[in-house]
Computed example of a mutant assay.
Amino acid sequence: MKRALGIILACLWGVGGLFFTHSPAQAVTTLKLGTIDSPMSALGQGLGVFSKLVEEKTKGQVKINVGYSSAFGGWAALLSSVEMGSVDMMVEDIGGWEFFDPALRIIRFAYVYRDYDHYLKYLNSSVLEESKKKILGRGHHFLLPNKDAVWARGPYRVLASKKPIYTADDVKGLKLRLYESETAKKVWGQALGANITIIPWGETYLALKQGMVEAVTSPLDSLYDIKFTEVCKYVTEIKEFFQNQTVTINTKKWQSFSPAIQKALTDAATETARTMNTRLYAQVEKDMQRMTDDHGAAFIRVSTKSFQEKVKPYVDELENQNFWPKGLYGRIQEIK
């Protein structure tokens, strides 16, 4: 009997270690994700959440290496890097992809959307789907926004300045730091008359402190982390356009993953968006109080009517110049 039992056990061991061995460890894929924001910013904290969720949902098969504060390049460089595959992923406001599709220029034009609900409907419309297909052709697959979630940013935009801004006339001649965007140049330079200087985000605080510029536009949730209100004591709600955090991944890298991993990445992005959206307003309220207490900042709420009146005449002009596709503004207004 003992001899027979020994033979059985030996056979089981010989058949691939059926009961007693473990399968080899699966290879781990580390994805490089670039952002211009710091680890302590609202976006930076959200990417920490995303990284943990990705590792959890893929059971450790995929990890995220975040290059904060432009460690993998500024957002314009990241567009090319993700397209080529030298960086796997990036996060930026969706308007940043205007360099790949002129139709997206309209996102950063001022006062296109009636309200945030109108903007959300645009994000889920066939109009934006046309742009997403073009961007896919440039090597970027969208994880966010998707049909289940939009990662809000801001929750609105402001103008931080060294002097109070109450109307559009106060912007004329203002020395304004701006990001690289043809649309933003049209709005702030041509329509509103500011004197524009293009300065990388990470260099803006020093430019403000040294007097190179005297104002900067920004999402509200970015102000405290980067300490703009140490220099710019006045913060005006301008709300010229809505923003959302957009997450893309190199298309070839995306296609290399199994359906299960693709689902895990999408689910992690969706869950991150929902988590950060619930935190946004509480965090912004806390930041505003800190800016008031620590920096002596004053928050100014104004009617945007004078800004809208200055900007609106440029819609037809830009369409006639094919700055964005003709009829695009009307198509967006028809979204209900």
Rank of each mutant, 00 (worst) to 15 (best):
L5R: 10
G6Y: 12
I7F: 12
I7P: 01
I8S: 10
I8R: 12
C11N: 05
C11L: 11
G14C: 14
G14H: 06
V15F: 15
F20M: 14
F20T: 13
T21L: 15
A25Y: 02
A25I: 10
Q26E: 13
V28H: 04
L31K: 13
K32Q: 15
I36K: 00
L43T: 11
G44R: 10
Q45R: 12
G48M: 04
G60V: 00
Q61L: 14
V62R: 09
K63T: 15
I64W: 02
V66C: 08
G67M: 05
G67K: 07
Y68N: 03
G73V: 08
L78N: 06
S80F: 13
G85W: 02
S86V: 07
D88F: 03
M89A: 10
M90W: 09
E92H: 11
E98T: 03
F100P: 00
D101G: 10
A103Q: 05
R105V: 01
R105Q: 06
F109G: 04
Y111H: 08
Y111T: 05
Y111L: 05
V112F: 01
V112T: 13
Y113D: 02
R114N: 10
R114K: 15
R114G: 10
D115K: 08
D117F: 01
Y119I: 07
Y122E: 02
L123V: 05
V127C: 00
E130N: 12
K133H: 11
K133S: 09
G137D: 03
L143F: 07
K147Y: 14
K147I: 15
V150W: 03
V150C: 11
R153E: 12
Y156S: 01
Y156G: 09
K162P: 13
K163R: 15
K163V: 14
P164A: 07
P164L: 04
P164T: 05
Y166F: 14
A168V: 14
A168K: 01
D170A: 06
K175W: 03
L176Q: 02
R177S: 15
Y179G: 07
Y179N: 10
E180D: 15
E182Y: 03
K185F: 11
Q190M: 06
W201H: 06
E203S: 14
L206C: 04
A207Y: 06
K209G: 08
K209T: 12
K209P: 07
G211E: 08
M212C: 08
A215L: 08
Y224T: 01
K227E: 15
F228W: 04
T229F: 00
E230R: 09
E230F: 00
V231M: 02
V231N: 08
K233A: 02
Y234T: 01
E237C: 02
I238Q: 07
K239C: 03
Q243S: 14
V247K: 00
V247L: 14
T248E: 08
T251Y: 07
K252C: 06
F257H: 13
A264N: 09
L265A: 05
A268C: 14
A269K: 01
E271S: 06
T272V: 09
A273D: 06
T278V: 12
Y281D: 14
Y281N: 09
A282G: 09
E285Q: 12
D287M: 05
M288Y: 03
M288D: 13
Q289S: 13
D294F: 02
A297W: 05
K305E: 15
K310P: 09
Y314H: 00
V315C: 02
V315W: 03
D316R: 06
E317A: 09
E319P: 06
K326Q: 15
R331C: 00
I332H: 05
Q333G: 01
I335Q: 07
K336L: 11
K336H: 11
